[in-house]
C-alpha cells in the first residue's frame, strides 16, 4: 500500500477588492455594503510585485495580477527571490506550479485597428489584413493569449522548474489546481507547489461582469516545511472522492479564482472545529498551535 506524504500550506496571497465576492468568501472581512467594488482592483500597481519593467511589458493585466498573488504567497512563505528556494534547501526541479485560468480574450486594440483598416466600405480584405496585421500586431501577441504563460512568468520569478499544470476547466479549475498541486507533493513528484488562480475583466470576453481577483497558496511537503522551520498555516488533504463536474465553491464573477479564494477564506477559519471541508478538499489546523487564528486573517487585500 503506497503511503502519501503529508502536505501543508505555508503561504497565502490575496488580491481582492472589497465587495460582493469577498463577502461571499469571508463575511468578517467584508467592506461595508455600500462600497461595492469596481470590477478592477483599485490601486493595483504591478510594479509593486514585479520589479523588472521588461518582464512587466511581456505580461497582460491578467498575468500581472496572477504574478502579484504568487509573489505575495511566496513572500508569506518566506521566499523573496529565486535563490531563497535553494537557500532553504529546496531543489528547484521539485518546485512547481498549478494554475487556474479562464479563457483569455483575443480582443486587443491593435487587432481591432487592423481589422477596421482592412475593411474599407465594410468589405473585409483578407490579403490586406495579412499585410497590415503583420506590422500592427505585437510579435508576442500569441503568447499573451496562452493561459500557461502565467505559470511561465511565475516560474521565472522564483526559479520553479518542477511539474506545471494549467487548468482551464472553468469554474472548477481553481479547486483542480489545488488538488493537482496536493497530489504532486503527496505522490512525491514535488516538494513545493505554487497554486494560483486569477481573473481579470480586462482579459475576459464574457457577458457577466468579471471580478478582478487572484489568490495563491504555497503548498509544501510537511517534512520540507519543518526542515526549513517554516510557519505552517494549515494541513491540507485532498478528499479521495471528487465528484466534480458541477461548479465547486466558485463564482461566475471570478470563474477561475473562485475556488481558490474559498480555500483562502477557509484558512481564516482554520481554528474552528470541525475542520473546514470544501468539496474535494479538507483543511486542518496546523499541528502546532503557535499561530493564532487572528494571524491568518486576510491581510493583502488592497481595498
Amino acid at each position: 500500500m503506497k503511503t502519501f506524504r503529508p502536505v501543508v500550506i505555508t503561504g497565502q496571497g490575496w488580491l481582492l477588492p472589497p465587495g460582493v465576492e469577498l463577502r461571499q468568501f469571508h463575511p468578517q472581512a467584508t467592506a461595508p455594503a455600500a462600497e461595492f467594488a469596481p470590477a478592477r482592483l483599485r490601486d493595483f500597481a504591478a510594479g509593486d510585485y514585479v520589479r523588472d519593467p521588461k518582464v512587466l511589458r511581456a505580461m497582460n493585466r491578467l498575468f500581472q495580477v496572477a504574478a502579484a498573488a504568487a509573489v505575495l504567497a511566496m513572500r508569506d512563505a518566506g521566499f523573496q527571490l529565486a535563490r531563497d528556494l535553494t537557500g532553504a534547501g529546496h531543489d528547484p526541479a521539485r518546485c512547481g506550479t498549478a494554475v487556474a485560468m479562464s479563457e483569455i480574450s483575443p480582443l486587443t486594440q491593435n487587432l481591432l485597428d487592423a481589422v477596421i483598416a482592412c475593411s474599407p466600405g465594410g468589405r473585409f480584405d483578407l490579403a490586406a489584413f495579412g499585410e497590415i496585421a503583420r506590422h500592427q500586431l505585437h510579435p508576442f501577441r500569441r503568447l499573451t493569449m496562452l493561459p500557461n504563460m502565467a505559470a511561465a512568468h511565475i516560474s521565472l520569478l522564483f526559479g520553479l522548474q518542477g511539474p506545471s499544470y494549467t487548468l482551464d476547466s472553468g469554474i472548477t479549475a481553481g479547486m483542480q489546481a489545488i488538488r493537482e498541486a496536493y497530489w504532486a507533493i503527496a505522490g512525491d513528484k514535488a516538494d513545493l507547489m505554487v497554486c494560483e488562480a486569477a481573473d481579470s475583466p480586462e482579459n475576459a470576453l464574457r457577458r457577466a461582469a468579471t471580478q478582478e481577483a487572484a489568490g495563491a497558496l504555497v503548498l509544501e511537503a510537511e517534512a520540507s516545511a519543518q526542515a526549513r522551520q517554516a510557519r505552517i498555516l494549515a494541513r491540507v488533504r485532498a478528499q479521495p472522492e471528487y465528484p466534480c463536474t458541477a461548479p465547486v465553491s466558485g463564482s461566475c464573477a471570478a470563474p477561475a479564482a473562485g475556488s481558490l479564494l474559498a480555500v483562502l477564506a477557509s484558512l481564516c477559519e482554520i481554528g474552528l472545529d470541525p475542520p473546514q471541508s470544501l468539496p474535494g478538499l479538507e483543511l486542518f489546523p496546523p499541528a502546532s498551535t503557535a499561530e493564532t487564528v487572528s494571524s491568518l486573517t486576510p491581510r493583502e487585500g488592497r481595498a
Partner: peptide, 23 residues
C-alpha cells in the same frame, strides 16, 4: 473549454471529474 466538458459529459454520461488543461 468548460462548454466542451459539459457537452462531452452529457453525450457520454461521464459524470466524474472533468479536467481541461492548456500547456
Amino acid at each position: 473549454p468548460a462548454a466542451w466538458l459539459r457537452e462531452l459529459g452529457q453525450a457520454t454520461g461521464a459524470a466524474g471529474p472533468a479536467y481541461c488543461c492548456y500547456t
